[in-house]
Every structure is written in structure tokens, then in C-alpha cells.
């Protein structure tokens, strides 16, 4: 039960060795977005920037679509992806809403409802 590979948690992917290997290029690109100059370079020419980091077709498509679930499936790690989505001014409620298929208002209400 302690093995991240065999454990299934609904709606959750553990960032294990398989994901760490699969997502390395994508995560490395997202890590670069700590730097404002790199964020600017990405916005100037997304395709060239993805090529520079060696993203595969699945990763490039998910980046193009700003699709967080797609980025996770392609090996993205939440902590690095947070830097990518920040480029577009999206906060964690925007991202939560996108991943759960809810409106942002409904997602915020869902969070607040846990207080009760």
C-alpha cells in the first residue's frame, strides 16, 4: 500500500519516478519561469521556447492549450506548473475550476463550504 505506483487515489496522480522521468523537459521549462526574462522569452515565441527545452508533442499541445490536466498527464508537476499558469495571471482558483470543470465562482464556493 505504500507504493506510489500501485496506489490509486481518485482524481490524483502521485508525482512518482515514472512521472518524474516523463515530465523532466516540461518541468525544466516551467522551472525556468522563475526568471522574468524567461517568461518574456516564452511569450515572445512559445514554439521556439518549447523546442529549446525539448518538449514532446503531448507536452507542447498541452502547453498550447493551457490545459492543466493535460500537462499533469504529460508528466508536469504541480509546483512547476504553478509558475507556467502564473504567466497568464491565473490563480489557484482559476486552475482548480479548470481541472474540475466548474466555474471559478462554484469552485470558490466549494472551498468555502468545507468550513461548515
Amino acid at each position: 500500500m505504500n507504493n506510489a505506483k500501485t496506489r490509486k487515489i481518485p482524481g490524483t496522480t502521485l508525482f512518482d519516478s515514472e512521472m518524474a522521468r516523463k515530465g523532466y523537459a516540461l518541468n525544466k521549462m516551467c522551472f525556468s519561469f522563475n526568471s522574468a526574462a524567461c517568461r518574456e522569452a516564452f511569450l515572445q515565441d512559445e514554439d521556439a521556447y518549447c523546442t529549446q527545452y525539448g518538449l514532446n508533442a503531448e507536452q507542447r499541445e498541452a502547453i498550447r492549450q493551457r490545459n492543466v490536466l493535460g500537462l499533469l498527464a504529460a508528466g508536469g508537476n504541480a509546483y512547476y506548473l504553478a509558475k507556467f499558469v502564473g504567466i497568464f495571471g491565473l490563480d489557484m482558483q482559476d486552475i482548480g475550476a479548470q481541472q474540475t470543470g466548474m466555474s471559478k465562482e462554484a469552485f470558490i464556493a466549494k472551498l468555502a463550504a468545507y468550513a461548515k
Binding site: 481518485p10 482524481g11 490524483t12 490536466l69 499533469l72 504553478a82 486552475i95 481541472q99 468545507y114
Partner: peptide
């Protein structure tokens, strides 16, 4: 808290 996946927004008070 959980930021990612279809279970994003999970809390267990």
C-alpha cells in the same frame, strides 16, 4: 489541500 488533478480543491476538516 490539493492543487492538482480532478480532485483539486479537496479539504478534510
Amino acid at each position: 489541500h490539493q492543487l492538482e488533478g480532478e480532485r483539486a480543491g479537496f479539504i478534510n476538516k
